[in-house]
Simulated scan of single mutants.
Amino acid sequence: MNQVFDAIQRSAKRIKNAIDIKDIGYSQQENSSGETQLQLDIQCDMIIEEEFSKVAAVHTISSEEKEHAEELHADGKYFISYDPLDGSSLVDVNLSVGSIFGIYEGGFGAENMVASCYVVYGPRVEMVFAQNKVKLYLLQAGDFEYVKEIRLTEKGKLNAPGGTQQNWEPYHKEMVDSFFKEGYRLRYSGGMVPDLHQILLKGGGLFSYPGTSDKPEGKLRRLFEVFPFAFVYEKAGGEAIDGKGRLLELGYRHLHDTSPCFFGSKYEIARVKEVYSQNG
């Protein structure tokens, strides 16, 4: 695991440099979801693949930017899924973006997850690594330094609702509005990584990306985004569900399978369960 952790750190440093200097124009390629890729997406994907190729313990990698998984080392035990640069379209307006890593042992799938990690590229570069605990690291003078362990409170104060509101179910909108009526503050940048990171570091709250009329199975990808953050939130003392059940009890039908998802403190997730059990 240490070698995997080191490879992620090397990747993060190189991606930070790429963000600072790379042309962020669109390429002529599309990713697995039919979205036109930025040059920066392709660059970051190549960086991570190159770093994991140096780690004999990594059996197979799968990227949000590629249709198929790629075997690297037949004798390796770790299967790693990653989103090289989540929120990359925010780079040109200088908002925070991130990389997400799900680390599985023996094969992909939530039941095989042994660790997860994400990196936030903002005014500072921060990394959160979850295994037995959730630990925060800060990039300082070229190296990631341990800062602290992260734990969520029982009840938060931030509300980050994703998806286009006109496509929400009425009961979902009512639930979101009810949190605002309790005094919750809106925090939504359009980037999954910085929004979930803010909720973690500010004590708690709710990040929601429901099934919508245009995307009933949700938008966010299980292996690359949903499962890794579910692992982080549970290890930090929070919960992560698809509306009713644990995200980490879901299977997947293909590498790019999606799911509705809700991440938060116990108080907010209890409300989600109540609302969705009555309306599902």
Rank of each mutant, 00 (worst) to 15 (best):
V128F: 04
T258D: 08
H254M: 05
C261I: 05
A230P: 03
G264C: 01
G243N: 05
F129V: 13
Q39L: 14
W168N: 06
F101M: 06
L247S: 01
T36R: 15
Y276A: 02
E149L: 11
L250C: 03
N17W: 04
Y252R: 05
S178P: 01
T36W: 08
C261D: 04
E268H: 01
I15F: 03
G107F: 12
E30L: 14
E154G: 06
N167V: 06
V93D: 09
L90S: 15
Q43A: 10
M192G: 02
F179S: 00
E126W: 02
N279C: 05
L40S: 00
K133L: 07
D257F: 00
C117I: 09
T36K: 15
Y146R: 14
D23M: 10
R124E: 13
Q165I: 14
I48D: 00
P216W: 15
W168K: 03
Y276V: 07
Q278I: 06
Q140G: 06
G76N: 12
K77F: 12
N112D: 09
D257Q: 05
I24H: 14
G183K: 05
S116C: 10
G106C: 11
Q9Y: 12
L223W: 06
Q140P: 03
N112K: 13
A115Q: 02
C117K: 01
E239V: 06
V176C: 09
L85G: 00
G109F: 04
P194F: 07
G211W: 01
Y78L: 08
E30D: 08
P84C: 08
N94C: 11
A270N: 15
N167E: 15
S265V: 00
G183S: 04
I19D: 08
V119E: 01
E64Y: 12
L186C: 11
L152R: 03
I19Q: 02
Q3F: 08
S81F: 09
C117D: 09
K22G: 13
K273R: 15
V275S: 07
K135Y: 04
H73W: 13
M127K: 14
A130K: 02
F129L: 14
G25D: 07
G25R: 09
I199D: 02
G87C: 11
E30R: 13
F227A: 01
I42R: 07
E249Y: 10
E49L: 08
H256T: 07
I150C: 05
S213T: 15
V147F: 08
E217I: 09
V193C: 14
L38R: 12
L196G: 07
L38K: 09
Y104M: 04
E154K: 13
A236P: 04
Q198V: 07
N31Q: 11
N17T: 11
Y233N: 03
R221Y: 02
D242Y: 01
F263D: 00
N159Q: 13
G34A: 07
C117F: 07
R246I: 07
G205F: 04
K173I: 10
D86N: 14
V125C: 13
E105W: 00
S208C: 12
H73K: 02
G122N: 15
D23Y: 07
Y267A: 09
Q28R: 14
K16F: 03
Q39D: 05
